[in-house]
């Protein structure tokens, strides 16, 4: 059985992600080595914590480059919450620091007209097209978000004081602002679709 590699970034709470994959029957392993990230069949970049704390760790260890390569090659990669923001050009949370630049835009704080952090379930609506994402209700826990899509990717949108990127996908690469591992049956089904796509690509 192939396993999923969960990238340990700083103080992120990884138990929920790990438990979700174990419920799918996938073996989950934690790792931080760039070589492992390069070679793993499936990689999860989770994210709870601060942008500023997570990013230097990624760049210093060569993890950032390994992630960029995987994503450019379309290899199965799942980014969650802060993980999605780390793929963008940067974040208002830590001005002056560059993200991995895979996704277009800078993560910006929600406006003061709504509750921040966004903690709770919000409706997700997908753009037309084929992919893993579908419409449904997802659990979010974030104060920053992207508000533009990236050409060549298929986005799903939610609304909290205006529309924002709920998730975005290209091939076997999926980045979710919400937490699929905490989004009940709907989230589980999405993880299942990503995981089965990842397994299709296991070389015989």
């Amino acid at each position: 059985m192939s396993e999923v590699l969960i990238v340990r970034t700083g103080t992120a709470n990884l138990a929920s992600v790990q438990a979700a994959f174990e419920r799918l029957g996938a073996a989950a392993r934690m790792g931080t080595e760039a070589a492992a990230v390069r070679d793993a069949v499936a990689v999860v970049l989770p994210g709870v914590g601060a942008f500023a704390a997570a990013l230097p760790a990624l760049e210093a260890d060569g993890l950032g480059e390994a992630l960029r390569e995987r994503i450019a090659a379309g290899r199965p990669t799942l980014a969650v919450c802060l993980g999605l923001q780390l793929l963008a050009e940067g974040s208002e949370e830590s001005p002056g620091q560059s993200g991995l630049g895979v996704l277009r835009g800078v993560a910006r704080r929600f406006p003061e007209t709504v509750r921040v952090p966004q903690l709770g379930w919000n409706q997700v609506r997908c753009e037309a097209g084929d992919g893993m994402l579908g419409d449904g209700a997802a659990y979010f826990a974030n104060s920053y978000r992207l508000i533009e899509s990236t050409p060549g990717w298929r986005a799903a949108w939610s609304d909290h004081g205006g529309e924002f990127i709920a998730a975005i996908e290209r091939g076997a690469v999926l980045a979710c602002q919400f937490h699929p591992e905490l989004s009940g049956r709907w989230g589980k089904a999405l993880l299942e679709r990503w995981w089965s796509r990842a397994q299709e690509r296991v070389p015989c």
Partner: peptide, 12 residues
């Protein structure tokens, strides 16, 4: 917490 987490796929 560990035992609940194993079965729960909503926030705790």
């Amino acid at each position: 917490v560990q035992a609940v987490r194993r079965v729960l796929s909503i926030p705790l």
